[in-house]
Amino acid sequence: MPIEYYIFLSLALFSIGIVGVLTRRNAIVVFMCIELMLNAVNLLLVAFSKMYYAMAVVNNSATTFGTDGQLFVFFIMVVAAAEVSVGLAIIVMMYRNTHSVDINFLNRLKN
């Protein structure tokens, strides 16, 4: 499949994520949309990685060129996991105080 298909697919997923973050009011759903954005990036990185490997392997069958894109994906997964643990802790902390996970509920800081 041409690389453009992957680019369009992951940009579509990414846009769904962005729209979700900007429009949804439930903190958990917003959070899921952010995860969707990260996973769109993962997909794109893996697709590019395969593309570059396929391009390089023609000249040199022992090449590792392009594999660093897949390594990056693992870093994104680990960091996303760390972010999830902190983010869910913050949402739980908020739920304990307000008994709600609606972000509209939180508008005390606006003057």
Partner: peptide, 17 residues
């Protein structure tokens, strides 16, 4: 709480970008 949640959501969003 609100500041923390807001900062977190904005920070994670900008990380995605």
């Amino acid at each position: 709480n609100e500041a923390s949640l807001k900062y977190f959501l904005m920070g994670a969003f900008s990380t995605g970008i």
